[in-house]
Design a binder for these strands. Structure first.
Lengths: 151, 151
DNA sequence: TCGAACATCTTAGCCGCTAAGACAATTCCT
DNA sequence: AGGAATTGTCTTAGCGGCTAAGATGTTCGA
């Protein structure tokens, strides 16, 4: 479609890298403040972002952990009150991990500062510009997902 | 500056979250393929993104690890040929961690697919739109860094 | 010059992870 | 239907990285 000077790509690469590093730091901090390990928080996030409840095995697949490790993760998350084990009535071998919404509200304040930053940033762009940015983010996420998952 | 419908914020929050999750997965995969733990790769990234060589202690601060853990990290990175320990000539207590550029080139291909995705995404935007997106990313990174670091 | 402060390394103990196998439920095949 | 193979989760042993505390070597100030 459009050509691009190499400097543009170079700058965007830097943005990506910087964003990555910040994301990982943020992730670490959030986990810490919730009293969880980064691994546990990562699995909790998977469970929250999923459509329905995930099974233990699916969490293992998505997180890249062994099933044994996931047993431990769920134990800790359950003990901390973030999730609940429910046996799947249609296949009683399976364990469904239900996120208990209640306890999560306690940690909303952790994301409030991030949310506020976002509002502040977005206020600097008019509706047309917002539309461009959204298109970029959507495309970037979609493309990156394909690239990451098939690696 | 500009007002915003709540749905816009909601959508952007979702983008951020999705990007975070993908970033963390990507980071895990890259580390794995380099034969490093996520922790080691994170520290290597810190060392690479810094202006000059970092000291071991500074890496501990930036990564949130204990100094003892950082000793282990540097041991492994050094053994794998990614970095080199150099004693600071001005203060011989300090250990400077120099990234040895050579061995890193071997892993460029890991980022190639990500780079290609980026080019593909950017080709869908004209120069004016690119400018908007860059302004957004710069602002977002800057604002987020302040929010994260002072938490 | 000597003691305090500093930077890194070492060590002990803990905890999470992997791999392998146990156990329970389900599906398949005849 | 009934036994074997498969599937999903949990248990366990062993390994390795992390923290905290203290050891070692270096610098700085009085």
């Amino acid at each position: 479609m459009f050509d691009m000077e190499p400097e543009v790509l170079e700058r965007f690469t830097w943005y990506m890298r910087e964003q990555s590093a910040l994301t990982i730091m943020f992730h670490t901090k959030v986990a810490e403040q919730m009293g969880l390990s980064a691994t546990d928080e990562k699995c909790l996030d998977l469970a929250m972002r999923a459509d329905g409840p995930l099974t233990a095995g699916r969490i293992a697949e998505l997180s890249g952990l062994s099933t044994g490790a996931v047993t431990g993760v769920i134990d800790r998350l359950e003990r901390a009150g973030f999730v609940r084990r429910v046996r799947d009535p249609h296949d009683r071998r399976k364990v469904l991990v239900e996120v208990t919404a209640g306890d999560l509200a306690k940690f909303a304040h952790l994301f409030e500062k991030a949310q506020q930053s976002l509002v502040q940033v977005l206020s600097r762009f008019d509706p047309d510009e917002i539309e461009v940015i959204e298109r970029y983010l959507q495309l970037q996420i979609e493309t990156f997902r394909k690239a990451v998952i098939n690696t």
